[in-house]
């Protein structure tokens, strides 16, 4: 396994408020990692720091053997870390197709290439392929602001993925999506990213989603990582259950109880 991202002793303070404290995380290639934690636990702050939106107070972030701390989002994106947003960041008054054309053009052109026409048939074909992979081809000509929430989320993630990043960080891909739609949406995203062999870190509140799609969990509480373990292990961690999952996650609690009961019977 190759290490692609290494975060050491990351700190972030806003005045007296500690938003991130002693964060140490190592991410391997092709991992799917779930980031969990209550609101305000520091999940988005972590993503913001790794992607350059927020400057950490201290610490070290190394990506593909290079120190990326303090670099702006555009540079980090060019290096290979992309992200999607809890509130989709799209070009609202443009069509889905034009959103992706723009996204491809920005990520593909540099220097004098910026002065070549935005539209060319090859790029349009790539956009259409991408629309197919994210299953939003039927919305190709719809204006982004009129899209249903789930489609807008997909567009946001599709735009983040145009550069074929090494790591993609998704900030709550399923927030605002109805329970029935969640799994369908995640299937599309994970299938597309799996094809691209992208390493994925995503913030998620729904433990069923976490259980189903991730191999490893990072649990945040008050700016600290209180648990970094394989999914099954993390979900029964007492700290995680007390501070992250709380009383809401009944299914796992009963399952754990059943498992414990089973073990007791065997003994």
């Amino acid at each position: 396994m190759t290490v692609v991202l290494e975060v050491r002793d990351l700190q972030k303070t806003f005045g007296a408020v500690v938003a991130a404290k002693d964060i140490n995380v190592t991410v391997n290639e092709h991992e799917i990692i779930g980031i969990i934690g209550a609101n305000g636990a520091g999940k988005t702050t972590f993503v913001n720091m790794v992607t350059g939106y927020l400057k950490p107070t201290s610490g070290h972030i190394e990506f593909a053997g290079r120190n990326i701390m303090g670099l702006p989002p555009r540079t980090i994106t060019k290096l290979g870390i992309s992200r999607s947003f809890q509130v989709p960041q799209v070009f609202a008054s443009e069509s889905v197709f034009d959103n992706l054309m723009m996204a491809y053009a920005i990520s593909e052109e540099t220097g004098m290439g910026l002065l070549s026409p935005l539209y060319n048939d090859e790029r349009a074909a790539r956009v259409d392929g991408h629309l197919g992979r994210y299953q939003i081809a039927e919305y190709r000509n719809a204006t982004a602001s009129t899209l249903p929430q789930g489609v807008r989320k997909l567009l946001d993630i599709a735009m983040a993925a145009v550069s074929n990043p090494t790591i993609l960080m998704l900030d709550e891909p399923t927030s605002g999506i109805s329970v029935e739609e969640k799994f369908g949406l995640m299937d599309i995203i994970m299938e597309a990213l799996h094809q691209d062999k992208t390493t994925v870190l995503f913030i998620e509140h729904d433990m069923e989603i976490v259980e189903r799609y991730v191999s490893r969990v990072l649990a945040f509480y008050q700016g600290e990582v209180i648990c970094d373990a394989p999914t099954a292990e993390a979900l029964i961690d007492p700290g995680v259950r007390e501070f992250v999952i709380g009383e809401e996650y009944h299914r796992t609690r009963t399952e754990i109880a059943a498992n414990n009961g089973g073990e007791a019977d065997n003994a």
Binding site: R74, Q89, A92, M102, M159, A160, V162, S163
Partner: peptide, 10 residues
Amino acid sequence: ENEIRVEYLG
């Protein structure tokens, strides 16, 4: 339309 997106496209 969206500067944040532009920055995150590189």
